[in-house]
């Protein structure tokens, strides 16, 4: 079935006509050219494809685009334009969180999701918050530190 699906993407109203079972991940990357959302497993395990749906963290490789009808989707491309997004990105850069970078856009989105629920997370809360985002390069320590740094620098933003 082909259907017109309307939703909000990075604060703009968009519509797409396609099979509602197409993965949101493919729609973002291939129909909207938003390549910041990555695919590393395609089965919900790694978090590289993370975005926010109505403010909540989801992995887009498991979501059919039909399920986002009427929803608000925020990808890294939208997030990087916000003060919060910039704060996290800068903290990641300064804190040494970035190595190969493939997991990082998803991590930034997960950090935003975490901080929006808990502006001053402890180390344990940060580790739990990014537990669905696999990183093979960093061993996570500097990512955790960088999220702490973002939380300190972004006092009042969340």
């Amino acid at each position: 079935m082909i259907d017109e699906i309307r939703f909000t993407l990075n604060n703009s109203e968009v519509a797409i006509t396609c099979d509602p079972l197409k993965r949101l991940l493919d729609v973002l990357r291939e129909d909207f050219g938003l390549f910041g959302t990555k695919e590393a497993c395609g089965e919900g395990e790694c978090g590289a494809c993370s975005v926010l749906m109505n403010g909540r963290l989801i992995t887009t490789c498991m979501v059919p685009v039909g399920a986002v009808k009427g929803k608000e989707i925020m990808t890294i491309e939208g997030l990087r334009e916000t003060e919060r997004g910039k704060t996290i990105i800068e903290a990641f850069a300064d804190g040494g969180a970035v190595q190969c970078g493939f997991c990082i856009p998803g991590m930034v989105v997960a950090a935003e999701s975490l901080l929006s629920r808990n502006a001053k997370p402890t180390e344990d809360e940060i580790r739990l918050g990014i537990a669905g985002n696999l990183c093979r390069c960093t061993g996570y320590d500097l990512i955790v530190e960088s999220i702490k740094l973002a939380s300190e620098r972004g006092e009042g933003l969340w």
């Binding site: 910041g36 997004g85 850069a93 300064d94 969180a97 970035v98 970078g101 990082i104 856009p105 930034v108």
Partner: peptide
């Protein structure tokens, strides 16, 4: 700050 950090973290 790594030369590639910002571009990678912001999805560029």
């Amino acid at each position: 700050r790594r030369v590639d950090a910002i571009a990678k973290a912001s999805g560029h």
